[in-house]
Design a protein around this nucleic acid. Sequence first.
DNA 1: GTGATGACGGAAA
DNA 2: CTTTCCGCCATCA
Length: 95
Amino acid sequence: MKRAARSERESRIAGIIDRIRDIPPGSVQTYGDIDRTAPRLVGRVLATTHQGLPWHRVIRADGSIPKGKRQRELLLEEGVPMRGDRVDLDRARAL
DNA sequence: GTGATGACGGAAA
DNA sequence: CTTTCCGCCATCA
């Protein structure tokens, strides 16, 4: 494949990682917020990238939690506003 | 090369 | 409120 294509792919990945890393404690971002055009890519990055990323601060667009109660507790510890089993996005969503 | 899949999203019913 | 369907990007069989 072409070099330019590869480079662009990787920079997109890098950007995704940066955004995740910059999510402040106590707030969250959705997959869509992180990359509008490829939310699935964000999920893939989290599933395959094992760096010290705050993976628990990434949730779905409707506020539901992808990784289950384990993740839910971590968010609770940071004081993320919840509404039952979902995150209250209006209050918790990072800018 | 094709087709299925995933830590998804949004629209439609 | 729910389920279904289709689009999205990158990987994998």
